[in-house]
Amino acid sequence: MENKFVQAPFEVDQHITAHSNYFAGKMGSKFYVALRDSKEILGVRCKTCSKVLWPPRETCGRCFSLLTEDDLVKIGPGGSVVSFTRVHYSEPIHPDVDAPLVYAVIQLDGADSGMTHLIGGVDPEQIEIGMRVTPVFIENRNGNILDIVYFKPE
C-alpha cells in the first residue's frame, strides 16, 4: 500500500452521560433533614479548636477530633456578607435565576466558617460587605441546599 499519504483530520463529537447518587452520611443527613423539616441550619462545634464549622462534618480537619451528633449546633439563620460577586451571565446550574445573579459568602451567626449562597430580593448594586442577611426558604423543601432560595437583607 501507499506509505506516503496525506490524511484529512478526522474528528467526532461525542458525550458521556453519568448518573450518581451522593449519600450525605451521618452528619450530612442530620443537616439536610433539619433544613427540610424545621428550616434550621446546623453546624458542628469542635471543642478542641473552639470553632463552629459549616457544613457539619464528622472529623475536624484541623485537629482530627472525632465529632458526633452531640456536637451539632444551630447556627444562623441570619448572618453577614463576608464577600460577594455579581455574575453578569446566566449559569446552567441555576436555570431559574436570571443574570445578574449575586453569589456571596455568608458567615452565619454562631459559625466560624462561611456558606456560599445566592443573594436575592435586593438591587445587586446595593449589596455590600458586612450587610446583614437572612435565608428565604421554598415551600416544598426536599433536603437540598436549594431549599434555601437565597439570602435577603434583614
Binding site: 463529537d13 458525550h15 453519568a18 448518573h19 451522593y22 433536603g143
Partner: peptide, 11 residues
C-alpha cells in the same frame, strides 16, 4: 439523605 445528580460531558 441521598442526592441524585447527572453529569453530561461533551467532547
Amino acid at each position: 439523605i441521598c442526592v441524585p445528580m447527572t453529569v453530561d460531558v461533551p467532547y
